[in-house]
Design a protein around this nucleic acid. Structure first.
Lengths: 183, 183
DNA sequence: TCCGAGTGCTAGCAGTGCTAGGAACGAGAA
DNA sequence: TTCTCGTTCCTAGCACTGCTAGCACTCGGA
């Protein structure tokens, strides 16, 4: 049965290759440029192969987003466990991987959010954020306060990435936001 | 020269019809459903007519967004001139016209933001927001603080509309945000 | 009555996501 | 070794997208 094992392994490797390639392509040229044809060409397989791994293009994006959740959680855990530290790590990550951030938090993906069924990696990120917010919750519901702070970070990130807010003052805006949530 | 005037008027009316129809279609089924063919069919003209009014589909979306800016400014002006009042009016508008909000603040439109060249209607909204924030600026840069508050509102709105935050607690999150920016 | 500008149509291009069908390969049986 | 059967993967094609070239027609002005 070793042959079958090898096949399963090769198949898993190919699936990972598709995800990684999709991510690279999106990061380089945006998700609009990630077409099934271009993606298939890059992984050096024909188009229908993609559909033997994923239900469709959306499912590929979802897989990429899941990778992003795990990475983001790592970044947040590595950051100083303060409100400012975690906030900075969050926006830095979004700035560094805008297409990934797009897939995770802007595009429509078929994943549960804000429920116990949400991906564990997403919960991990949220937990780090929660711990950073905790010291500053003055009797407020900690979960809701964290959601609110997260939303504020998200707004800052998306408006800046989308060119609605000038990038050069981003640091000062982030500082203002953090200050308002401290204490 | 009256004939020419009539033609110009009819042309302007048709242009408005295209904008209104695009808006209705987007609000009813989302922007993905707004294809040039469906839009042309609804306004009862052939597809190429759209291109005699607008450079492309994006330009139609931009025209719709501009309408939205004007409407939003009106709504904000009509709201109680407090931080809570304006914030509530902002999120209410987004909730009521999600597709319009999408075109205005989420999709890529070819408009200048956060510069003096930005659409006047957009500045009008921002000015109302600024006045609501002013009493709570404790020595901070008022423009930057307003941008930050706006970003936070935007984050709340987009995460909620995108299904990333449960709608039912929206009011409480909004109250938390406003409380953090008061004083 | 005729002309010419200009308007709006039909038809088509290149590209999209996705799928049906068959060809080719390779593992196991005879 | 040869045959058979499954699986794997590709070619070809569908229905759609945004957009445009080019022709037919209309209609005001002479």
């Amino acid at each position: 049965m070793s042959i079958q094992k090898r096949r399963e392994r090769e198949r898993a490797e190919r699936e990972q290759l598709i995800i990684t390639t999709a991510r690279e392509l999106a990061e380089a040229e945006g998700w609009e440029a990630v077409t099934t044809r271009r993606l298939a060409e890059r992984v050096e397989y024909s188009q229908p192969v993609l559909y033997s791994h994923f239900k469709g293009k959306d499912a590929i994006m979802t897989a990429v987003a899941l990778e992003g959740f795990a990475e983001l959680a790592e970044e947040l855990r590595a950051a100083p466990a303060t409100l400012a530290g975690v906030a900075r790590a969050y926006t830095d990550y979004a700035e560094r991987c805008p297409a990934l951030y797009d897939a995770m938090f802007r595009r429509h993906v078929d994943l549960p959010f804000a429920t116990p069924q949400a991906p564990p990696a997403l919960w991990a990120s949220f937990d780090v954020l929660t711990e950073a917010v905790r010291p500053h919750a003055r009797g407020e519901d900690l979960g809701l306060l964290t959601e609110t702070f997260w939303a504020a970070l998200h707004g800052l990130v998306t408006l800046t990435l989308g060119g609605r807010l000038p990038r050069d003052q981003h640091d000062r805006r982030l500082a203002l936001l953090v200050a308002r949530f401290e204490t």
